[in-house]
Nucleic acid binder design. Structure first.
Lengths: 103, 103
DNA sequence: CCGTTGTTTGGCAAAATAGCCAAACGTCGT
DNA sequence: ACGACGTTTGGCTATTTTGCCAAACAACGG
């Protein structure tokens, strides 16, 4: 793994890392059903406004979502929907793990 | 997001988190080309034996790879190859980010 | 049985992450 | 201009993650 490769894998890992949090993953999936404002997530997730905002900022910085301000509210939308194609595979990992992992 | 859902998303995030590290992601991709022993990775990645071992343990615990001891060496193989299907999408995120993210 | 090789484990320090609070900011209605 | 609402930012602490070192283990060769 040379320096160039290292850079590439660091970038890829950043995208994965953005999704690798229960709340962020859940929010990303919600956005698949259409845009949502921050306040909607706050109610649904049950954490602080600032926490939701920071999570969304992580997703945005990773290039996964985009935000748009309309009036007082900020709406987030899924910029790259393919990120959710992965979920079937993830679920198969979880299933195979629980069936094969002996203890 | 109720308690049940929270559990599910926590589990999904765990799998993603396992892949969300440059070294682990790189190793997972290497394993797509067939099994490798720990020592091969040590040479290629340039970190400590123990570090490689721990990274592989994370992937194993997540259910992504499996290990098998043969003689002195431990060989790791990709248990769920679909995890790499995601890479095209990740790359498109990176591309769209660099082209659209205005600064 | 001893040394060597390949790997894992425990322990530690440094760095990154998560989530709360308080404060700041932008937009709207009045 | 003022207050209310929706959001972001800064700061703080607690927790997690990373990676090195040293020690422990396991399997083989002589």
């Amino acid at each position: 793994m040379n320096a160039r490769e290292k850079k590439i894998y660091w970038a890829k890992a950043k995208v994965l890392k953005a999704l690798a949090h229960p709340t962020r993953l859940w929010m990303a999936e919600q956005l698949a059903g259409g845009e949502r404002c921050v306040c909607e997530f706050v109610d649904a997730v049950g954490v602080d406004f600032s926490t939701v905002s920071k999570h969304l900022a992580v997703l945005k910085k990773a290039g996964i979502v985009a935000d748009e301000k309309r009036g007082k509210k900020v709406f987030y939308r899924l910029k790259v929907p393919c990120v959710l194609n992965f979920m079937d595979c993830i679920e198969s990992v979880i299933r195979s793990e629980s069936s094969c992992e002996c203890r």
